[in-house]
Simulated scan of single mutants.
Amino acid sequence: MNHWLVKSEPFKYSWDKFLSDGRTFWDGVRNYQARNNLRAMAEGDLVLWYHSNEGKEVVGIAKVVKTAYQDPTTEDPNWVVVDLSPVETLKKTVTLETIKADPFLKDIGLVRQGRLSVMSVKLEEFDRILELGS
C-alpha cells in the first residue's frame, strides 16, 4: 500500500462536501508530476486530504476506490482521475505551520514541493500526521 496527499481548495471542494457526497473523482490535475502520481495510485491506498489556500491543513483520510481513468472533464487523453471515498475525519486538523515545525516532517513533499497538488507520502510521514491529528 502506498500513501498520498491531495490538495483541495475548500471553497471549490471541501472535506465536508466530500463527506456529504461519499465519493468523488479527483479531477482538474494539469501537472505531469501530479498526473503521474494519480496513475501510480492503487485501490486501497490511503490519502491525506489537505485544504489549501484557506486553512492550510490536513483534515481527513480518504482511500482510493478506483484507479486512474480518463478525466471526464476533458477530451485530452493526457489527463486522468481516480475515485476517492472518505475514511475518517481527523480529530484535530494538522496545519501546515505544525507540519513545518515538526523536525520529523522536514522533508515531506508538502514542504519541499508546496505547489504540487497530488504527492506521495512516506508511511512514517503519514503516521506522524495521524499522530498529530489525534
Rank of each mutant, 00 (worst) to 15 (best):
R35I: 08
D107Y: 12
K122A: 14
S85N: 00
H51F: 12
F11S: 14
R128M: 04
G44Y: 07
T89M: 01
E124S: 14
R23V: 11
D21F: 12
R35Y: 00
P103E: 08
Q33C: 00
S117Y: 02
E9V: 09
K92S: 11
K122F: 07
N31K: 06
N78H: 15
P10Q: 12
G28E: 04
A68F: 01
P77H: 07
E9K: 04
L116N: 03
V6N: 02
E124A: 15
Y32R: 07
Q33D: 09
V80A: 08
M119E: 09
D127F: 01
V65M: 01
W79G: 01
D71H: 07
T73W: 08
I108S: 02
F11T: 13
I108M: 15
E124V: 13
L48D: 00
E9L: 05
D127P: 00
K56D: 09
F11L: 12
F25P: 05
I129G: 09
L48F: 02
T93V: 13
E97S: 15
V59C: 15
G114I: 03
I99P: 01
K91W: 04
P86E: 10
G133C: 04
D76Q: 07
R115N: 11
V58L: 06
K91Y: 09
G109S: 14
A101E: 10
V87M: 14
K63D: 00
F11R: 13
Y69V: 06
E54T: 11
Y50T: 10
M1Y: 02
T67A: 13
V118M: 04
E124C: 01
T24L: 06
V64C: 07
A101S: 15
S52P: 04
D21E: 14
M41Y: 01
S8Y: 06
N53E: 10
W4D: 02
K92V: 07
K63N: 03
W15Q: 10
P72M: 12
W49H: 02
K66A: 13
G109T: 04
E75T: 14
A68P: 02
A101D: 11
V81Y: 06
L130T: 00
G60I: 09
Y69W: 14
T74D: 04
L123I: 10
K100A: 14
V82H: 06
S134D: 10
W15P: 07
T67S: 12
E54H: 10
R128Q: 10
R115E: 08
K66M: 06
V111C: 10
V58Q: 05
V58W: 07
M119R: 11
N37A: 13
A101W: 02
D107P: 00
E57V: 07
L84P: 02
